[in-house]
Simulated scan of single mutants.
Amino acid sequence: MSRTTPATKALQAAGIAFELVTYDYDPDADRIGLQAAEAIGEPPHRVLKTLMAEVDGKPVCVVVPSDGTVSMKKLAAAFKGKSAAMMKPADAERLTGYHVGGISPFGQRRKVPTAIEEAALSEPHVYVNGGQRGLQVRLAPADAKAALGAVTCALMA
């Protein structure tokens, strides 16, 4: 497994401190984020999943705890839109340059507006996909927010 990805390069370029954590990725897992949390021995609310969605037809990135569900109404409101929907996996891969199961909010092919669940900011550290299946980056949630230029709000259903 490569330990250098566009995500890790973006974090290094931004001067963000992070640690790499690898795990055995299970392509058959029902919920990839929950499988990652279990594999690295962290509570699911501390392991964040990266989702790609569209608000009023425009792409956005959403970072939420792996054990949560995004409220489409709250997501639309976060970006001052009227409606939100999940992006098709093929579209998400094309837009980000990453494969599903390895999509990171950092170092995406095209930068899009990003929102982070506000509850994540109260954690001492969080894990976010490092841009490859089986690779997580451990970092301070405030650093993740700063690196992404993200908005924070309540996004969970």
Rank of each mutant, 00 (worst) to 15 (best):
V63T: 09
V63H: 08
V64A: 15
S66I: 00
S66Q: 02
D67K: 00
D67F: 00
G68F: 02
T69Y: 01
T69P: 01
V70K: 05
M72H: 09
K73P: 08
K74M: 10
K74S: 11
L75K: 03
L75F: 04
A77Y: 04
A77C: 07
A78L: 11
A78S: 15
F79R: 12
K80R: 13
G81N: 10
K82P: 09
S83Q: 14
S83E: 15
A84V: 03
A84W: 05
A85F: 02
A85I: 00
A85S: 14
A85G: 13
M87W: 04
M87T: 06
M87I: 02
K88P: 14
K88C: 09
P89G: 13
D91I: 01
D91T: 09
E93W: 04
E93M: 09
R94T: 15
R94N: 13
L95E: 07
T96Q: 05
T96P: 11
T96I: 05
T96V: 05
Y98K: 03
Y98N: 03
Y98V: 00
H99W: 02
H99A: 12
V100P: 10
G101E: 07
G102P: 03
G102Q: 01
S104K: 06
P105D: 08
P105Y: 07
F106D: 06
F106T: 01
F106N: 04
G107L: 01
Q108A: 06
Q108P: 09
Q108N: 03
R109I: 03
R109F: 06
R110K: 11
R110G: 00
R110S: 11
R110E: 10
K111S: 15
K111F: 04
V112E: 08
P113Y: 02
